[in-house]
Nucleic acid binder design. Structure first.
Length: 900
RNA sequence: GCCCGCUUAGCUCAGUUGGUAGAGCGCUCGCUUCACACGCGAGAGGUUUCGUUGGUUCGAGUCCAACAGCGGGCACCA
């Protein structure tokens, strides 16, 4: 068999995925056991415009690890893929394309434009889905969904109509955030606050019929043209007499009232606030309280309206600001301007400064929908957030303070609002136009031109993809609620909470048991990755450079922690993949006569130490990895796998097995040893599979003796090429976890390490063979070492090993060491030993031990410790101290033997 | 302003019932040892030490309090 020395991931990555997919390995139907427990995940649907970024790769890796693990455990496992139509993002993308062609959506008209977006979706959308295949994600493509699929659109209309009928959705004027660039209303979650250095302008308004002026402070002087009052705190002595009086609004020349309102903080600014109900959320609320007129002075393009006055009409809001300030200065009414840092609101998508406007839109009373999820999290801590801190609290706090959700968007791409108007302007909300006509009693209806917020349909994702509103849908029955939602923290409110609301409302059950929030990946300087900064890491480049499996290990170990990306981590996992490849290469090159599953016959207690030990380590690792995955401690799982495979299996087990495995003559003993190595390798590949699907499959396929019978019972009947992804995840058999074997092996490892250490310290050439004297009879290790004689010889490059009662009898010119437990080893090195140096070497050793000894003795001499600490802890320390004393004694004798 | 997280080896990070400080990378030395130089072997490196200061405890990186630096989230102070 020809196997290259270096693992090239490309081939495996191209080879296996298509077969898995073709043979239906990803679909839950592959599992023939209807009694199996169910495990399900719905993917956070990436935007149709999207391209894979490192955050996706992180989430998908976590989801795939969970999915593959549970599938191997025999669960009926579903990971459902799909995409989001991503309203604004997609529309803007297509508009940009049209612009290049010298046309626009308005030229095309609505119908043609939407057709065009669908076309675009077919052509370019779904790029990310191809990339998801590259990641090895074991999603069930037969259940792929898109938020604008007919079925999902039906779910959207059903959601809307039911909420409208219950009075949870209403249409009406309200203060909304308007993006002048995207030309649409936005919800409060789609805007971002940013602090900004600006100015605070102190403007004076004359009091009618008096010389007196009232000073108000504002960051937006241009809005004064729309002021309809000045408010003061009712308790503020300074202004008490002014309440109810009239002010003359400069420039506009309008008369406005002074009102008293508790909202006003007397401590801030001048204690008098200009009130612009049309252009500020607080002022709007205040306006409602005091019945103030609403004067719109800024339009949807962020330009001043005719209401702002002829001089301002059509002026940009910032130009108007300058002009207002100029005029105030001319009028002598500009008191002062001070530097001031304040929060500005920007469009989360395009970063344009938001214009708060009063506008007629559709709203959802979220507070009512939020009640059920709030109760659930408060009373049962469901869903379970991982990490619990801080996300459970963040989620809870948000649910406690819900505002109405602005649903309508002035876009063309999205779910059209299912509301129709008759000629009199009466509204009919219905699932279909027919239903609306029936309600209206006329077919002269016009549908509302607006579409719904993208998150309205995303919020239904777990139930709509599984079949809701068809409540009898088998998928909904089987796979809902889903097991876990894996996502980034920035959409906990936008998405996670909404799915909980809709799930609870329409099915009475939570959308998912757990919510796993991934960490954020920064660049190596700790900066957030962003397109504009160009500091992002493209996962596809990383795949090309280091392989998908190595990247997945890196991502899995990142898990929920915020971390700075560094390639060297991936490189080390690339090296690990290569290590696995070469370990398998060794096993395969020595596989003649061997078969997976054989070699471990008979009672474990009859096995050689290293065999008992590796089986113990394997079972321990299986237990730890399984436990870690189930607790979402992916870093721990990766750590356990890495060290089991590299340290235990490669560094020790394979090395200890070499003499048995690589004998020139075929024998049953050799076959058995080869089978054992292969069997451990095969089990290790299964453990690694959820993290490294491609490499493990590539190697597993090559192993002699694997086949249909290797599969988990649930998949034995399946008509598929046997694959490691359907093999049973190794069960951790507690009875095979052998503490004694592990302790004994530790002694053997220490012996070998100490001899190697002596060789290096005394510069014995690697090629030179030595003799060893071991004195271990007194502590029961003699038999143990004797049984491993050939391994000791091989790994320490010793040509002979002699057992003695004491190393006092061995040649004086020897380097010596004392092991934990008191066994001694001596390496005669005639000509290499400088007695003074060797005494010094032993002296350093004694010094180290003495330091530790002093610490222990001090603690044992401390009466309160001995009295209050648990007895077993005290005993443990006593034994350690005794062992160290004994070793110090032995070393002392050795030093004496080397005396002048 | 309120809430929260982080601060451990040169770098990136683990450290889950409080009980002898860890990994990877990097560094030093030696090895083309018949799976692997993307490797093997041996080491150095945390000033009795885990941001600082106190506290609880026989015992604290681990629990509590305060402070500092950094980073988040929330917030209708013009």
């Amino acid at each position: 068999m020809e196997i290259p020395k270096t693992y090239d991931p490309k081939q495996a990555e191209e080879l296996h995925y298509a077969r898995w997919e073709r043979e239906g390995c990803f679909a839950p139907e592959i599992n023939a056991d209807a009694q199996s427990p169910v495990y399900s995940i719905v993917i956070p649907p990436p935007n149709v415009t999207g391209s894979l970024h490192v955050g996706h790769a992180l989430q998908h890796t976590i989801m795939d690890v969970l999915t593959r693990y549970h599938r191997m455990k025999g669960f009926r496992t579903l990971w459902l893929p799909g995409m989001d139509h991503a309203g604004i993002s997609t529309q803007v993308m297509v508009e940009r394309q049209l612009k290049k062609e010298g046309t626009s959506r308005h030229d095309l008209g609505r119908e043609k434009f939407v057709e065009r977006v669908w076309l675009w979706k077919e052509q370019y959308g779904g790029q990310i889905l191809k990339q998801i295949r590259r990641e090895g994600a074991s999603v069930d493509w037969s259940r792929e969904r898109f938020t604008m699929d007919e079925h999902l659109s039906r779910a959207v209309r059903e959601f809307f109509v039911r909420c409208y009928d219950e009075g949870l959705i209403y249409r009406g004027p309200g203060m909304i955030s308007w993006c002048p660039k995207d030309q649409t209303a936005l919800s409060d979650l789609e805007v971002e606050k940013e602090s900004q250095a600006g100015k605070l302008y102190y403007l004076q308004y004359p009091v009618k019929g008096s010389e007196r002026r009232v000073t108000v402070a504002t960051t937006r002087p241009e809005t004064m043209l729309g002021d309809t009052a000045v408010a003061v705190n009712p308790a503020d002595e300074r202004y008490r007499d002014l309440v109810g009086q009239t002010l003359l609004l400069p420039i506009a020349g309008r008369e406005i009232a002074v009102v008293a309102d508790d909202f006003v903080d007397p401590e801030f600014g001048t204690g008098a606030v200009k009130v612009t109900p049309a252009h500020d959320p607080n002022d709007y609320a205040m306006g409602k309280r005091h019945n103030l007129p609403v004067v719109m002075v800024i339009d949807q393009n962020a330009r001043m309206t005719v209401e702002a006055g002829a001089e301002f009409d059509g002026l940009d809001r910032y130009a108007a600001r300058e002009l207002v300030v100029e005029k105030f200065e001319e009028l002598g009414l500009l008191e002062k301007v001070v530097d001031y840092e304040f929060a500005i609101t920007k469009c989360g998508r395009c970063r344009t400064v938001i214009e708060p406007l009063v506008s007629t839109q559709w709203f959802l009373k979220q507070a009512e929908l939020g009640r059920a999820p709030l109760e659930l999290i408060r009373e049962k801590h469901e869903p379970r957030f991982v990490p619990e801190v801080p996300y459970e609290k963040v989620y809870t706090n948000w649910l406690e303070n819900l505002y109405d959700w602005t649903l309508s968007r002035q876009l063309w791409w999205g779910h059209r609002i299912p509301a129709w108007y008759d000629e009199a302007g009466r509204v009919y909300v219905a699932r279909t136009e027919e239903e609306a006509r029936a309600k209206a009693g006329t077919d002269k209806l016009t549908q509302d031109p607006d579409v719904l917020d993208t998150w309205f349909s995303s919020g239904l994702w777990p139930i709509s993809t599984l079949g809701w509103p068809d409540e009898t849908s088998p998928d909904l029955k089987t796979f809902y609620p889903t097991s876990v939602l894996v996502t980034a923290r920035d959409i906990i409110f936008l998405w996670v909470s909404r799915m909980m609301m809709t799930g609870l409302k329409f099915t009475g059950r939570k959308a998912f048991d757990d919510v796993f929030i991934t960490g954020t990946i920064f660049d190596k300087h700790g900066q957030r990755m962003s397109k504009t900064k160009g500091n992002g890491v493209d996962p596809l480049d990383v795949f090309d450079k280091y392989g998908v499996d190595a990247t997945r290990l890196t991502l899995a170990s990142i898990g929920s922690t915020d971390t700075r990306w560094n390639d060297s981590q991936v490189e080390s996992y690339r090296n690990f993949a290569n290590k696995i490849w070469n370990a398998a290469r060794f096993c395969l090159l020595n596989s003649e006569g061997a078969q997976v599953g054989k070699g471990f016959e008979g009672e474990p207690k009859m096995w050689a130490l290293h065999d008992r030990w590796i089986v113990s380590r394997l079972n321990r690792t299986a237990r730890d990895v399984g436990r870690a995955i189930e607790e979402y401690q992916f870093h721990e799982a990766v750590y356990a796998l890495y060290h089991f495979f590299w340290d235990d299996f490669c560094d020790w087990y394979i090395e200890l097995s070499k003499s048995d495995v690589s004998g020139a003559e075929a024998s049953t003993a050799r076959d058995a040893a080869r089978s054992r190595v292969l069997t451990v390798l095969e089990q290790a590949l299964r453990l690694l599979h959820p993290f490294m699907p491609f490499l493990t499959e590539e190697l597993w396929q090559k192993l002699p003796g694997v086949g249909a019978e290797s599969l988990h019972p649930a998949y034995r009947e399946a008509d598929v090429t046997p694959t490691v992804m359907l093999a049973a995840f190794p069960l951790a058999d507690a009875s095979l976890i052998d503490e004694q074997a592990e302790a004994e092996m530790q002694s053997l490892i220490e012996l070998i390490s100490r001899v190697r250490n002596i060789r290096t310290e005394l510069s014995v050439k690697p090629s030179e063979e030595v003799r060893l004297f071991i004195s271990a009879a007194g502590n029961g290790l003699g038999q143990l070492f004797n049984a491993s004689l050939s391994q000791i010889k091989r790994l320490t490059r010793a040509r002979e090993v002699a057992f003695t009662d004491s190393t006092a009898d061995v040649p004086r010119a020897s380097a010596r060491a004392v092991l934990a437990g008191g066994a001694e080893v001596a390496v005669p090195l005639e000509g290499l030993i400088d007695f003074a140096q060797e005494r010094a070497r032993i002296g350093r050793e004694v010094e180290k031990l003495e330091k530790e000894s002093q610490k222990l003795e001090a603690q044992l001499a401390y009466p309160q410790f001995v009295e209050r600490a648990p007895a077993e802890k005290v005993e443990e320390l006593r034994q350690r101290a005794a062992d160290i004393r004994q070793r110090i004694g032995a070393l002392g004798q050795m030093r004496e033997a080397l005396g002048e």
